[in-house]
């Protein structure tokens, strides 16, 4: 799974933040034999056909590790010129700034990463909503996109997060989800698609999204 830069390669960026095995295995499951590599090598990212940036844990740690491993520019370059999928923190880091640890992101998409507001974390009947937002929630597809192909609007995906992205430009919103507030759960611009949920843990809907990414020609 490591190394290599063969044609058609799908590269999963390894910047030391947790379990990449699930992402790589889910991609392999739908890749139809295309090589999936987990890599911390900027040259492999540059040679890859498409790039996936997963992420879990805390945004400040993710940004630090990305910089320390010399991967920051490689990720920015990949987001500029090849099919790019950001997952969870891999979505959040695309934005300008995060409230989590008050850190700057990569600034590729305009907007902020915010924490779920405590005062809104309840249902109309008063029932309290827990944070992290953990479990299967519906994603409304706010516009057509190749990565939604074959996935019913409102399908449930697995989420686990306490922060969400708030894009300045509504034009980059591809999906929304309700949890106390409506929030942006999928973004798309040009060759970039990014989701807050974990497609690698979202059963059939998630695998369909990953398969769509592998076949996507933006």
């Amino acid at each position: 799974m490591r190394g290599g830069g063969a044609a058609g390669t799908i590269a999963v960026v390894d910047y030391g933040m947790g379990n990449l095995r699930s992402v790589a295995k889910a991609l392999e499951h739908v890749a139809g034999g295309k090589p999936v590599v987990v890599t911390a090598d900027p040259a492999v990212l540059a040679a890859a056909e498409r790039v996936v940036v997963p992420g879990q844990g805390a945004m400040p740690d993710c940004m630090r590790e990305l910089a320390e491993r010399g991967l920051r520019q490689a990720v920015i370059d990949a987001a500029a010129n090849k099919p790019f999928l950001g997952i969870c923190i891999g979505q959040q880091m695309l934005f300008d700034h995060s409230e989590e640890g008050d850190v700057p992101g990569l600034g590729i998409l305009r907007g902020q990463v915010r924490r779920f507001p405590a005062e809104k974390m309840h249902l109309p009947d008063g029932q309290k909503l827990k944070v992290p937002h953990m479990g299967w929630n519906e994603v409304r597809q706010t516009r057509p996109h190749a990565l939604w192909n074959g996935i019913a609007d409102g399908s449930r995906f697995y989420f686990v997060h306490s922060y969400y992205v708030a894009p300045d430009d509504a034009g980059c919103i591809a999906g929304t989800t309700d949890y106390g507030i409506p929030f942006t759960s999928a973004c798309a611009r040009d060759n970039i698609f990014a989701v807050q949920c974990h497609p690698e843990k979202s059963a059939q809907a998630g695998l369909a999204l990953l398969a769509n990414f592998i076949n996507w020609k933006p």
Partner: peptide
């Protein structure tokens, strides 16, 4: 766990 992660795509 490794084998499960290759075949089961839920948490």
């Amino acid at each position: 766990v490794e084998a499960c992660a290759e075949q089961v795509f839920i948490p």
